[in-house]
Computed example of a mutant assay.
Amino acid sequence: MKKRWLLLLALMLTLALTACSNEGETEGKEEETTATETTNSEDTEKATKSAMMQFYMTVSKTINEKDGELNAYEAAVGTEEPPTAEMKASAEAAAAEVVSDLDSVEIPEALADQKADLEAVVQELKDSYQAKADELKKEEPSLDAANETFTSADEKMGKAFESVGLNPSSLGTEVNG
């Protein structure tokens, strides 16, 4: 009877140890999976932030490549030496070129979740520069409405930045300076 009791006790101890060792393996696998998921999440977050910065730089570069004459015109408005007719014509052409060039801006795949918002930003920027081009055809142009549209696009860009964990940008400072 003692032998059976010892044998049963040994069997129960073996089962208990086996169960504990399997539990340890499961916990280790869970920890490993969690660590891998965290790393993948961090990598995705970094890739998204990087893509947002690249998109922002592409937009600002696209605008800056063409809007120099427009910036010169706007800076001359209200000064002692108002802009000349040539400056006005150059500014109108520059604004139209910006509109055309913004059509080539593509939104990176890493920003799929922000795509609709970023498309709206690009469209508002195009609308702003088109409004400037249209206003500059007039005898007495007013760029106020176009500048409000630009400001709205800039605010939307800032919200897109925040949506990926970045501080808002200032596209106005980047392209008007």
Rank of each mutant, 00 (worst) to 15 (best):
K2T: 00
K2Q: 06
R4I: 03
L6C: 03
L7M: 06
L8C: 13
L9A: 04
L11P: 01
M12V: 10
L17V: 05
A19T: 12
N22A: 03
G24K: 08
E27P: 06
E27T: 04
G28P: 06
E32D: 11
E32I: 14
T36R: 11
E37W: 09
E37Q: 11
T38Q: 13
N40C: 11
N40D: 06
S41C: 02
E42S: 09
T44A: 02
E45N: 03
S50M: 00
M53P: 04
K61C: 04
T62Q: 07
N64Q: 05
E65M: 11
K66F: 00
D67M: 03
G68E: 06
G68W: 01
L70Q: 08
Y73K: 10
A75L: 13
A75Q: 12
V77W: 07
P82C: 10
T84W: 05
K88F: 09
A89K: 02
A91T: 06
E92H: 07
A93W: 05
A94M: 07
A94G: 03
E97Y: 05
E97I: 03
S100I: 10
L102R: 09
L102I: 12
D103V: 10
S104T: 14
E106M: 15
I107W: 15
P108A: 14
P108H: 10
A110Y: 14
A112P: 13
V121T: 04
V122M: 06
Q123A: 12
K126C: 01
D127T: 11
A131T: 01
A131L: 03
K132H: 09
A133M: 03
E135L: 01
E135H: 07
K137P: 02
K138F: 09
K138C: 00
E139L: 06
E139D: 04
P141Q: 09
S142N: 02
S142V: 04
S142W: 10
N147E: 10
T149I: 11
F150V: 01
F150C: 00
S152Q: 13
D154V: 00
E155I: 08
V164I: 04
P168G: 00
S170Y: 12
E174L: 03
N176M: 05
G177P: 05
G177Q: 04
